[in-house]
Amino acid sequence: MSFLVELLIIIILCAVANSLLGIFLVLRGNSLISFGLAHSILFGIVAAYLVVSQLNSFLLLIGAAMTGLVIVSLVELISSSRYIRYDAALGLIYLTVFAVAIILLTKYVDNAALSLNAVVTGQLVYTPFIRLTILGIDLPRAMWILGFLLFLNIGFITLFYKELMLTSFDPTYAKIIGYSPQAVSLLLMALTSLTIVGSYSVVGAILVVAFVITPPATALLLSQQIRVIIGSTIVIATIGAVSGLLLAWFLDISPTGSIAVVYGMGFLIALMIGSESQLRQQIFSTEDKIPPPPNYLIEHGGN
C-alpha cells in the first residue's frame, strides 16, 4: 500500500472509531468528558513511559486508558459533593493533571513521540513507519490498534444498542426495570478512554476532541432519526478526515489542525442548511412565510 493510502486508512479508522462513541457522548450531553479523558490519558502515557521506558507495549495502552478512566471517575465522584461545581472541576483538575504530564514530559522525557508537538498535533505522518506484523500481515501498528478499536466500538454499539439508548434517554426508568446506567456509562467511558489512547499517536491529546464531538454534532443538525444520525456521522467523519488530510498534504500544513477545521466547516454548513437547524428561520422568517393554521382559514372564509 502506498504511503498516502495507509495514512488515509489510519485517519479514517481513527475518525470513525472516535465519532461513533462520540454520538452517544453528545446525546448524553457529556461530550466534554472526552476532553478530560484526553488530558488524563496523557498523564497516564507519560507516567507509564517513565516507568517502563518504552512506548510500544500494549500494557502502556491499557495502563494509560485505565489511568484516564480512574481520574475521570474520581472527578465525577468529587464533583457530586458540594465543595466544587461540576464544570469547574472538569476544567481545573484535568488541566492540573495535564500540566503535571507536560512538566514530566518536558523535563524527563527525550522521546520524539512524547514531544510537545506530538501532544498537540499527533504524529500522523510517522505512523506508517511503526509497523506490526500479526499472522503474517504487515501493517502500521496504528492501523492494527485503531482497526481493533473500531471493531470493539461497533460491537459495543450493536450489542448494547438498546441499553445505550435506554440509559441515555431515561436512566431513572432504566434502573427501575433492572438495568444499570452506571455499568453502561462505565463501559462507554472505558471504550472512549481506550480509543483516545489508541488515537494519541495519530492526532495527539487535544484535537482528538474534534473527532469525537464535531461529526456527531454535525449529523444531529441534519436529522433526528437515529439510524440516519449514525450513518451520517460515519460519512461525515470519513469525508472530513479524507479532505482534511488531502488539504494538509497539498498545502503542507498540520493534518490534525486541517481536519479539525474541515469538520468545523462541515458543522457550519450543516448549521446553515441542515433540516434540524433553525438558523434560516431565525434570520429570514417573516409573517408571510408562515402559513395560517387550517381552522383560521375556515373561520375567515378561506382567505
Binding site: 453528545v26 476532553f35 484535537l207 474534534a210
Partner: peptide, 20 residues
C-alpha cells in the same frame, strides 16, 4: 457541552494549522 466542544476544537485546530 457539544457546542463548546465543536467551537473550541475547530478554532484551536485552525490555530494549530496556521501555526504550522
Amino acid at each position: 457541552d457539544a457546542a463548546i466542544g465543536v467551537v473550541l476544537s475547530t478554532l484551536f485546530g485552525l490555530g494549530v494549522a496556521l501555526l504550522s
